[in-house]
């Protein structure tokens, strides 16, 4: 991971040119416009929902089933279309790894 210099007063950071998401460095509110670097270009976009500190916002449109990237690497898969400016979290992306629930193993509930 290359070092991203953080400037005073920036609201979000995109870690890598391949990323679909930016991470909020403060709480973002719906309707506000943020500026960040996306694939080498400075881009302004409107935030659609409240984004808590440390959470992710989509900076590129993500289509259902697409791999979602942060740090330039795959962090999961979109379970629905995610427009630019939307909160990206457990409600619209899922992990691909460690998914015993999809592997047909024994159920883990307290039935036993």
């Amino acid at each position: 991971m290359k070092e991203k210099a953080m400037q005073k007063g920036v609201s979000v950071i995109v870690m890598d040119d391949r990323d679909h998401v930016a991470t909020a460095l403060r709480e973002l509110v719906p309707g506000e416009t943020i500026t960040c670097e996306v694939q080498g270009n400075s881009v302004s976009l409107a935030v659609n929902q409240p984004i808590p500190f440390g959470h992710k916002v989509a900076v590129i449109h993500i289509t259902e089933g697409d791999h979602v990237r942060k740090y330039g690497e795959v962090i999961g898969r979109a379970v629905c279309d995610i427009p630019v400016g939307d909160h990206v979290h457990v409600h619209n992306i899922e992990g691909i790894r460690g998914r015993g629930d999809q592997a047909g193993g024994e159920p883990s509930s307290a039935e036993a």
Partner: peptide, 13 residues
């Protein structure tokens, strides 16, 4: 490790 999670039939998350 991942096989062990699969054996338990659970989502890690």
């Amino acid at each position: 490790f991942e096989k062990e999670v699969e054996r338990m039939g659970a989502d890690m998350r």
